[in-house]
Structure formats: structure tokens, C-alpha cells
């Protein structure tokens, strides 16, 4: 039910530890998703400003975790939360993203 709305693709990078150092390594590419700016209430309760919090919808079971970095349309976001959900019997993943400009 959700997949017809997935009009963008995303890439996931994850902090990977190697010895005493860690770096962000690519985990997956070209996953399908829908991305939209979070509403006023959700943005406010997360202590952020308009444009900083985004919502991404992707397929159920997608390998995305809190603290991952997601790239959509060349813009980097940090994953703040991941939730499995159902709409009309169709499973999907709801992901909260923070857009960091620095």
C-alpha cells in the first residue's frame, strides 16, 4: 500500500568499529523511500526547528538503525528513530531523520 508513494532512493551508512577507530561505511544503496518534512508538533517535541526533522517511509524490515546516516538526493541525515508500523494491513518502516547542516 505504501510502496507506490516511494518516489526517492536512499543510501545507508553505519559507524563501523575497527580496532580503536571507527568510520561510516556504506551498508545499502538505492533503497526506495518517501521523504517529507516533519510537522510542527513532532518537530517541537524533538527540540528542533522547522527543516531539521524529517520523516522517511520505507519497506518493512529495511536495515536502518538509530545513529545510521542516510543520504537522500545528496543530502545527509542522521537516523534519530526507527519504528515498524502497519497501514491497512501493509507493513512499512517509519524513520525519523535529523538534517544536520554542519
Amino acid at each position: 500500500m505504501m510502496s507506490p508513494f516511494f518516489d526517492k532512493t536512499f543510501t545507508v551508512k553505519r559507524l563501523t568499529q575497527s580496532g580503536d577507530k571507527s568510520s561510516y561505511q556504506s551498508v545499502s544503496v538505492d533503497g526506495a523511500c518517501m521523504l517529507r518534512q516533519a510537522g510542527a508538533h513532532l518537530t517541537q517535541i524533538n527540540g528542533l526547528q522547522y527543516g531539521e526533522l524529517w520523516e522517511m517511509y520505507a519497506a518493512a524490515g529495511v536495515d536502518v538503525r538509530t545513529t545510521d546516516r542516510v543520504t537522500v538526493d545528496g543530502v545527509d541525515y542522521t537516523v534519530k528513530g526507527v519504528r515498524s508500523d502497519t497501514l491497512g494491513g501493509a507493513d512499512y518502516t517509519h524513520i525519523l531523520l535529523v538534517k544536520k547542516t554542519l
Partner: peptide, 18 residues
């Protein structure tokens, strides 16, 4: 080496740690 990266300002989006 001991560092993953080095920057000229404290507020950055790092490529890794430390």
C-alpha cells in the same frame, strides 16, 4: 594512526572516531 580525522572547528560532521 590514532585519529580517524582532524578538523579546524569543533562543530563538524565527522567521517569517523576518534
Amino acid at each position: 594512526q590514532v585519529l580517524a580525522a582532524a578538523y579546524k572547528s569543533h562543530s563538524v560532521k565527522p567521517s569517523g572516531y576518534p
